[in-house]
């Protein structure tokens, strides 16, 4: 129940598609947030979501005067056990120094607008239930539990 300082800087970033030139900054931001540098992973994400099927795949960045403030990635998909096509967000990250400035909100709203333009009416994702920061973020954007439950099996215990 701590009370973080509220940052009131008016430095609204531009939301745009990622380009290959952004990859190094993306890897750096992700490494700062997760503690792991994953250049191959992000190169693969860019190749799949930044260059192909651009009408249904979105790899967006919050560009603050040439500096990366955040990113979001997702696609229109529809394969889970008869699910109708929906927008699926699988990555969102904001520079820790730029949090509480509505950057995640701007990124999420932009990708939702692009999903809507692509013809879907739902957006979904999957979040670790103990990741309260991310869960709270998506909740604050109006997301609620959907009709699917994620199940898993430890293969060492498989029947």
């Amino acid at each position: 129940m701590g009370q973080p300082p509220q940052d009131t800087r008016d430095d609204t970033p531009e939301i745009r598609r990622a380009t290959e030139d952004d990859l190094a900054a993306v890897v750096r931001l992700d490494a700062r947030v997760t503690g792991q540098a994953k250049p191959d992973y992000w190169a693969d994400i860019f190749e799949r979501f930044g260059t192909r099927r651009q009408d249904k795949r979105f790899f967006l960045l919050a560009d603050s005067g040439g500096k990366l403030a955040g990113l979001i990635a997702g696609e229109v998909r529809g394969w889970e056990f008869g699910s109708e096509p929906c927008g699926w967000v699988f990555a969102v990250s904001v520079d820790p120094e730029r949090r509480e400035q509505h950057i995640g909100e701007a990124l999420f709203r932009e990708i939702c607008a692009r999903f809507r333009a692509a013809g879907v009416s739902k957006v979904r994702n999957m979040v670790r239930r103990d990741d309260r920061l991310l869960m709270s973020f998506f909740r604050s954007e109006g997301m609620v539990a959907g009709p699917y439950i994620q199940l898993e099996l430890d293969l060492d215990d498989a029947p």
């Binding site: 239930r129 103990d130 309260r132 869960m135 709270s136 998506f138 909740r139 604050s140 109006g142 539990a145």
Partner: peptide, 22 residues
Amino acid sequence: NDIANATYGSITLATMLMQIEK
């Protein structure tokens, strides 16, 4: 219980106020 705690733990009062307005 874990799912309930995750749900309660991710909903802030601000989020509740937003849902109420909706």
